[in-house]
Design a binder for these strands. Structure first.
Lengths: 360, 360
DNA sequence: TTGAAAGCGCTAACAA
DNA sequence: TTGTTAGCGCTTTCAA
């Protein structure tokens, strides 16, 4: 048999014990067909007769054969791996994103190479690794990863999608929630609720989510002839948010309405207000968040918030991925997924108007 | 030049536009050295003179060259990818694990291929993918992934490490916290606190964590001559845990001590007790959890709990990984990482004895 | 529909 | 220290 010389190659003997997995050549030998026949059997839409196909499949099963995706990638120039970078994973929003994204990518035939980065943007070493693995695309699920990084990847021919982050100055594809509209809606709701002293708990200053949410909030307040809200920065981090809340609520003229740039910080704010300062949240002080993470609905918080529907956002992400990777076009660099105000009890509800408790 | 025929290969022309990345051959040509010289330059501990090395590096930089890890893996039989499977990602414990594990693996030179699986164990399709990518090892960070699955992987020559999950009937390497000892300690603490009516909120019945924690708890109570605690199952899920808590606290003889199989469920229990039933948690009812997740320390909960130190557990995991992958040995199939009782205010503290508030 | 043959980009003997 | 050469396991022409 022609394959015999391969069977006694020294590579094989040198192979690490226990890691000698069967190859297409092994299967071919067992099935009595050529190695290409095996390849065809495992290639979608290749032309193989049912007869050979069956023989190959049987041999493959017996030998526990699985195509080596690495070798395949070498030829096809497609790894079916998507790099996913996530920050702030202690913010419940991101594990949820990971869960939904993971399933959606799996269905779409992609695997996830995960990068959990820390607050600071020292993502460059990780980036280098990403490029070594020839990922088909990169999804940056983070409010804080710079778009310069994204540009760098794109220069390498790796399509980039920013998730929950937008850079108006770049043409990088992005998926976001209704940050500006959401901020406006929150302001409208709080104004209708008769609040007088407005405050804003800011997240990372350079993030688009923070800028847009604050921008929407401020713009509505300004149009309503109200003064610019008080402000403190919590950098999207729990403990910093708690600290910022203390500062905000320690003023002589304490605010009666506090909009937090995301739910994660709002949870910190509620707890500082309630447990430390004994404030009756929902009556003396109204707190509103953004995202509608799981804990926002918990009985202990009942947080009113503007939602970012993760499922829909992920769906858009996958659509965009297909568009970019398969069709090599990129018509809509920014896709905004609509959310809605979820009214619970952490903020006073206007007596009249369109506002209704969302879930009681 | 010898390389010219490669330069006009039809593969190259066929390459997807924009994804023509430079190869070691390109760099070799630019630097005027052989392709193996390039390979050596990028291989730790290979013998290259500083002169060639510098020329190669310069050329590589100019061409934005990065070694193709896929091709490398094909030869070395090492992918430096570790498959990580996670379930229950809404339980704050797991995002934390992912964060720490991700960093530790990065430092150790590994990348993570992530699989987020859902409650049920339909992990098999994902498994198939894993094997295609020839991961160097598989870390199952989950209380619920069966060890039969792990055995299957091992049969394929893929080392498996179970994180926070132990199967006494298999010899699969595992990392766990002090489940049994922790359960006992909690019981000891509650008995010393003068509680009379004990309850247990169980997690997934077939999980080792649940069995061991409950076993430790029950064994201490039995030795103290106390009756078997009441019991309901919350399956490690928030809403089920809330439901189970309602059942438990709805008894005529309401328990005054509730040990929950993990913090995630304990948070549900506290909220049901406090918000729905108006129970004074920490006085009328003592609640204790397991894990010491971030939210356990939140002012809204102040949960007394037995800790599972994620950093130490991850360190052990990496040690084990090195042991198994590099040295092909596996002396210690089970490594138990010590935790401690973190005393907060969700459970009455014994007047005397060794118990002290951990963080006040 | 099939097999032979030529690579994909790299590492690792082997000689020089 | 270097270049040559032979693969790693696969896909993909090209003929038959």
């Amino acid at each position: 048999m022609k394959l015999s010389h391969q069977a006694k190659s020294r590579k094989e003997r040198a192979a690490k014990v226990g890691r000698r997995l069967s190859t297409a050549t092994d299967v071919a030998a067992a099935a009595g067909v050529s190695q290409s026949a095996v390849s065809r059997t495992f290639t979608e839409g290749a032309s193989v007769s049912k007869a050979t196909r069956d023989r190959v499949l049987a041999a493959a099963k017996a030998l526990k054969y699985r195509p080596n995706q690495m070798a395949r990638s070498l030829m096809t120039n497609r790894s079916f791996i998507v790099g996913v970078a996530v920050t702030h994973i202690d913010n419940q929003f991101y594990p949820k994103v990971l869960e939904v994204l993971s399933e959606a990518l799996r269905v779409a035939g992609y695997r996830i190479l995960l990068f959990v980065t820390h607050g600071t943007v020292d993502f460059d070493p990780a980036l280098d690794e990403l490029l070594k693995y020839r990922v088909d695309a990169l999804i940056l699920a983070s409010t804080s990863l710079s778009s310069s990084l994204a540009e760098e990847c794109r220069a390498f021919g790796v399509p980039v999608i920013m998730f929950n982050n937008v850079d108006p100055n770049s043409s990088i594809a992005s998926i976001s929630g209704e940050n500006f509209v959401g901020g406006r809606t929150v302001a409208e709701f709080l104004v209708a609720g008769g609040h007088r002293r407005f405050a804003f708990l800011a997240g990372q200053e350079d993030s688009s989510t923070n800028q847009l949410r604050e921008g929407g909030y401020n713009s509505f307040l300004a149009e309503a002839g109200l003064p610019r809200p008080m402000r403190a920065n919590g950098g999207f981090q729990f403990s910093l948010a708690a600290e910022a809340t203390r500062k905000l609520l320690g003023q002589k003229k304490m605010p009666d309405a506090l909009f937090c740039a995301n739910d994660h910080m709002a949870l910190a704010a509620i707890q500082v207000a309630r447990q430390e300062l004994g404030i009756d949240v929902g009556r003396t002080l109204s707190v509103v968040g953004f995202d509608d993470i799981g804990a926002a609905a918990w009985p202990a918080f009942e947080l009113t918030t503007y939602s970012q529907p993760v499922d829909a956002m992920v769906r858009s992400t996958i659509d965009l991925l297909h568009q970019i990777v398969d069709e090599r076009k990129n018509d809509s660099p920014l896709s905004i997924v609509p959310g809605e105000l979820i009214v619970r009890t952490s903020a006073r509800v206007p007596k009249r108007g369109k506002w209704l408790y969302s879930k009681l």
